[in-house]
Amino acid sequence: MNKPKSVFESRLAARHRQGRLFGAVCMASTWFGIGVLVVLLAGVTWQAAGWLNWSFLTNFDSRHPEQAGILAGLWGSLWLILFTTLFSVPVGVGAALYLEEYESNGWLQRLIQVNLSNLAGVPSIVYGILGLTVFVRMFGVFGSQPKVVALSLGFTDLEIPLPFGRTVIAAALTLTLLILPVVIVAAQEALRAVPSSIRTASYALGATKWQTIRHQVLPAAAPGILTGVILAVSRAIGETAPLVMIGALTYVAFTPGDISSPTDIITNPAGLAEAPFDTFTALPIQIFNWVSRPKTEYQHVAAAGILVLLTVLLVLNGVAIALRHRYQKRIRW
């Protein structure tokens, strides 16, 4: 009786040491990631110091590192944010509504659900190839000369080239396909969080399915959907590979539609109609381009560009978090 007990006790100290060591290793692993994040941010800031200034934000790219700026990329990315959101929200929310509210248990729903999780795993560069073939070249069915379809908008003509070519619209459509699985899944989660008693109550009052969705379910799910959309769009904005594929230009000395400041929207309204069908560059493309240049000064330019990109992402994420926070407080079931 005595012997096994003493063995147990002498082992106990060793076992506790082993446990503490293991805990320490696990903790160190956790902080490793955060450590890298800190080093990365600090390093980029250090490299960008002195290079990120007002003229960097208002200049176009240049062969002289000191004069290189990010204006074209900034506007390109803003247009991409706008159109990607415009395209992905209705389609993504529509798909989620269909899957959650209309076809919640059919074989089609299961098929689409499996398909969504597989799509989310497809490398972004493959989406780039899809976008290149479908949107930029349109399978080559229009031959080598683009045809232009003109639509009158009243104050100006909307000139749509077919195929789209290397334009903002082609890129936004590609990014839309890329983030659609994420948007759909986020919207589905938000819809699922709406208690079913709301739906039952609405039906019992004689509402049709769409009235119930439109007046009760969507408003209740809106904050969740919006948060998901912003997070997905912020992912799209950092994406470089698909944009490289569809041929976003690397050296650009203009902004889409020649709109390079908010006042231009008033003075040059025709530019609004031109912008979607203009060639463009984007923040990550400019960064990639600068990183690839041999002159070491461009390292600093790239770092400054990275800070601008990270700031845009931070703003988007901040908005998402604020939204989530605000509406969580407001509605308690």
Partner: peptide, 26 residues
């Protein structure tokens, strides 16, 4: 049919809206 046959549930289930909007919904 449901317009003419109203229903009240076991657990009250007001919409997350104002009192006015709840009653005016139907």
């Amino acid at each position: 049919l449901r317009n003419r046959v109203g229903m009240v549930f076991q657990k009250s289930n007001p919409f997350p809206k104002s009192i006015f909007e709840n009653v005016a919904y139907g």
